[in-house]
Design a protein around this nucleic acid. Structure first.
Lengths: 137, 137
DNA sequence: CTACGTGCAAACGGTTTGCAATTCC
DNA sequence: GGAATTGCAAACCGTTTGCACGTAG
């Protein structure tokens, strides 16, 4: 099935690509950095280079297979998640890095209203709440 | 007056610091990158290094004199604005880089409700709408 | 067979830092 | 005068890229 996604994107079905897709599918909190993917694959015994991980992820992004985020207030590494087509925003734990996705109709509508008020056409938006979950470790 | 802010932060009143504060105060859309500040100061005839601009801005950030943002979906340069203590979000033009600040009570409240629902304590948040203004250029 | 994909190492761009010279109080 | 600040150049770190080799179809 990852096969199909790749074909659709006009990408050859190569081992690195399949493995990376696989990692993302199984990621417990759905978000992984290029480096995390790279290291996990290495310790899985795969032979792959970090450059390939980045190249593949960039291609996946272009093909709408993944979405790239820049959580982490500062400009630390990007994280990637599979793109299931459903837009959502994120709560990110500053303690553990845990990520929870949410979607809120009221906020989305309000953004549109505000855009109208300011004569602005929204093409994209990002919203991240930083903090901590009460039930964390 | 910039004098006072600096004193309060325990920072000596040096020429670079005053000049940088000055640039930020006069910035037409309130937001400037380190490099922009640096270049403008140079063409104003000042002698300053980019390293100093970065160092000063980082100190200002720690002293809550400025806020650092990472607009520009990708990991491009940070922009800085004076911290007037009032929280606000941003609309950023992908065409011109124009930035408009806004604050919306409904969205802020909704964020709090969502946080409660997810057992999350919000410590910070960022929300950026990317798009274009109808009245641009 | 050949266009596409990969590994390696070097380049990149924004930002930070060690150090010696300079400046503020 | 002495601590804080600066400039310079080199280091950093995440990410990208040129190139020669490898592989899918």
């Amino acid at each position: 099935m990852s096969n199909i996604e790749l074909k659709n994107a006009g990408l050859k079905t190569t081992l690195p690509r399949v493995k990376i897709l696989d990692k993302l599918e199984k990621a417990e909190n759905h978000h992984m950095s290029a480096e995390t993917i790279y290291k996990e694959l290495l310790s899985d015994g795969e032979i792959i280079s970090l450059a390939t991980v980045y190249r593949v992820l960039t291609q996946f992004e272009a093909a709408n297979i993944v979405v790239r985020h820049h959580f982490g207030n500062d400009n630390t590494q990007a994280v990637f998640e599979l793109d299931h087509g459903d837009h959502h925003d994120h709560m990110v734990s500053l303690k553990t890095g845990k990520v929870v996705e949410f979607y809120d109709e009221i906020i989305e509508n309000r953004q549109k209203e505000l855009a109208k008020k300011y004569n602005f056409k929204i093409l994209d938006h990002s919203m991240v709440l930083y903090g901590e979950f009460f039930d964390e470790e």
